[in-house]
Amino acid sequence: MKKSAFFGTIAAATFAAGFAAAGTLEDVQAAGELKCGVSTGLAGFALADANGVWDGFDVAVCRAVAAAVLGDGNAVKFVPTTGKTRFTALASGEVDVLARNTTWTFSRDVDLKFEFAGVNYYDGQGFMAPKALGVTSAKDLDGATVCIQTGTTTELNLADFFRSNNISYEPVPIETNAEAQAQYLAGACDVYTTDASGLASTRATFEAPDDHIVLPEIVSKEPLGPLVRHGDNNWGDIVRWTLNALITAEELGVTSANIAEHSANAGKNPEVNRLLGTEGDLGGMLGLDKAWASRAIAVNGNYGEIFEKNIGVNTPIGIARGLNASWTDGGLIYSAPFR
């Protein structure tokens, strides 16, 4: 392509900028598509299939928001972001919402000026070791060589854990998860450490997964969730309450199977009615229509269904609900009430 297209684009950009509205919601509705930042590829969370259709646990959040705002779960432009580009992509407006298993931390929330819409997955850093090594606890790992991805919070967590337990380790720095898998299998390190969800999916790909054990210690808190820019509270509310709608739907037993029936007529449960817009007008307060939540849930089902479909025990990744069970089942997934 020629330079001329560059000038043309700059010109177009200059004109477009003049019409840009203040609110993200208006921008998204004007564009007719939601720009959603996702990972370039993370098993179970964000991946494109052979036809280029994106799917995954994080992708489902994007689709739910798109369905709530635009009425179409496919009206999403997925922008693959890497760990290095994700925050500038969000800050500069290249994406409207970032759902790229990003840990909610103080500095990201406050210093980088983002707003986390909630938590869709409670993760934590764990360890995996071959059974042949004979360890049953991370505290037995004195002197072990540890494969670790550089430049992530896992590196700091690892140092903290070993120092506070007064044991030594030798880090083997690795750039990507794929490389780490290969190094670990080749025996370049005794232990591989990363988020527990990553360990589960990595272990599932091994030729003999039963020869490897995920140690019981979880050494960090990694609440992952979608985030938006500071400064547009209405848009933040939309993403937060879309996520809450998915969570509440599971709690109230609204599934993709029965949502049509529930949405058609007001039922006995007033909270279901408020959620699905058959009673009251919660959607209007968000600047959306009454059926917003109903559409968001209809795309991929409620939180539990999304979990089971993408990363649950019946998938190759096989993660149990654990901390991510609904609070009614003893987990941490909890939504503020729809009222």
């Binding site: 950009a13 200059t14 477009a16 900028a17 840009a20 921008d27 500038t88 992509a89 407006g93």
Partner: peptide
């Protein structure tokens, strides 16, 4: 992205 006017594509 940061230099260009917001909303530009």
């Amino acid at each position: 992205n940061i230099f260009l006017p917001p909303g530009s594509n």
